[in-house]
């Protein structure tokens, strides 16, 4: 059937690798581009809803609750916040810079009214709701216009935030 020699036999083929790969060019759009541009300078920019004053971070440019553009002045947020909820991860996935087991957290940044999901570098026995945390940034020379400029959050020596300050995010 063919001039080429058959390959060495290695037993029957029982498994097939069938990778699916989708390559996109993601366009961040006006709002996220502004946020990511600020990120390159180490700033966290939220956007305020003109109807109820809530601050969204990250913002997609419109208020999901009122459907209005968030086109007022951006609100600069602290890189500190409060753990609203958390989860302990014991299964490895790629590109996570922490060793297992590690903690994922929903952080309410100071000045924001939404949660940001991120990693927390912390003893898994110590994490708790209301814990005060701060962003651990990459070295400044490695900053790009990416949310990956923040490696993870770390606990800071501040008293826990009162329950009422984050209860709506649970």
């Amino acid at each position: 059937m063919s001039d080429k020699k058959p390959e060495e036999k290695e037993g029957p083929v029982q498994v097939l690798q069938t990778p699916v790969r989708l390559e996109y060019v993601f366009s961040a759009g006006q709002s996220a581009s502004r946020l990511l541009g600020a990120m390159a300078k180490g700033k966290l920019l939220g956007q305020r809803c003109p109807v109820d004053g809530r601050v969204y971070f990250p913002s997609r440019g419109s208020c999901p609750q009122h459907g209005v553009p968030l086109d007022g002045a951006p609100v600069e947020l602290a890189d500190k916040g409060t753990v609203a909820t958390y989860s302990i991860v014991r299964i490895p996935i790629e590109k996570v810079p922490l060793e297992l087991p590690y903690v994922t957290v929903q952080v309410v940044l100071d000045g924001a009214d939404t949660v940001l999901m991120h990693l927390l570098k912390c003893d898994v026995d110590k994490v708790h709701m209301g814990m005060r945390v701060q962003a651990k940034w990459k070295p400044r020379e490695e900053w790009t216009s990416s949310v990956e400029n923040i490696l993870y959050f770390e606990p800071i020596d501040e008293p826990d935030a009162p329950y009422d300050s984050f209860k709506e995010h649970i």
Partner: peptide, 19 residues
């Protein structure tokens, strides 16, 4: 802003199937 940022975005599923 002048131009929206763009970035490559790759989604890959490393499926194996039993034959």
């Amino acid at each position: 802003i002048e131009k929206a940022l763009t970035a490559p975005h790759v989604i890959e599923y490393t499926y194996k199937r039993s034959l």
